[in-house]
Design a protein around this nucleic acid. Structure first.
Lengths: 155, 155
DNA sequence: TATTGTTATACTCTATAACTATA
DNA sequence: TATAGTTATAGAGTATAACAATA
């Protein structure tokens, strides 16, 4: 039962996502909701259309996600300054704090994982991963591979 | 907007999974259903309980997945030889063929991705990935990280 | 006429709890 | 009493289609 490199990468992400899910326990946050917050963090106040496109998901879907995030105090819907059809989704201080911590945790975890790699191997590892991404992106006409992704550390 | 190593790994898996999803279009297969097939392939005819444990998912969930796989001709439920409460889920020729192709495609894609990496970098890449997995697994008390995973190539 | 966000509806994946048939 | 699988119910995430308000 040889494990291919793809199997290993999948396992890393699976482990990581379990860790992330554990960190959300007891909060109304889920991966999908954090994905929305992530977009707002990287782009600033955004229309739901823009969020839907960034996440490659239907606009209808964003309505529900934002409903929950608004109802639990993470975001506000405010009037768009020039387009009265649209709303701008923007952070409350709660979300700003949570996302700041999430980003810090994510960086720490990433550094810790890289720290587990023999420093002599790090440059080759980085080059190898970049080459794999380039190859995969070339294979699949991915439009845009999306945002960096809603990634964070657990604990 | 620095991309951490974790961001890159997440992007690889995201690209890969989109590719996989595209390959399923027009079939009744989904990631969850393929995960069930994957377990049956690696373990042979299995009880639903065994599948549920292997996938770390509730037994109830497996009922529905197997219902669909059975209804669409991928698996059969057969009597357990010694336990009349249990059923054995086993492949039809259809699933056997599909899984064989899937495994072949997966290996090919994995080889192709590794082939995109400078051969001088491959050993360090492999070591680095293994080190990251070991670190992540040590961080999270994961019970078992699960099967190799239902991974396949698109097209 | 096209776009933004909503209501309506439906499918999939997941969970827990209660029940049936068996161990 | 415990286990295998089911029915019942519910919450998430996703989709398409139709509609209102506005561009």
């Amino acid at each position: 039962m040889e494990q291919t490199i793809l199997d290993k990468l999948l396992m890393i992400v699976e482990l990581f996502q379990r860790d992330m899910a554990r960190a959300f326990e007891g909060t109304p946050l889920t991966q999908a909701r954090v994905a929305v917050l992530w977009i707002v963090q990287t782009r600033g106040p955004s229309t739901q259309q823009a969020i839907a496109q960034a996440l490659d998901v239907s606009p209808r879907n964003i309505s529900t996600l934002v409903d929950v995030l608004e109802g639990t105090g993470y975001v506000r819907r405010t009037a768009h300054p020039t387009d009265r059809r649209a709303v701008l989704v923007e952070f409350t201080p709660l979300a700003a704090g949570v996302m700041k911590k999430m980003q810090r945790d994510h960086t720490e975890l990433s550094d810790m994982l890289l720290g587990a790699v023999s420093s002599a191997d790090v440059p080759a590892l980085q080059r190898g991963i970049d080459a794999i991404i380039a190859k995969l992106a070339a294979l699949a006409p991915i439009a845009e591979a999306g945002e960096p992704g809603p990634a964070m550390a657990g604990s």
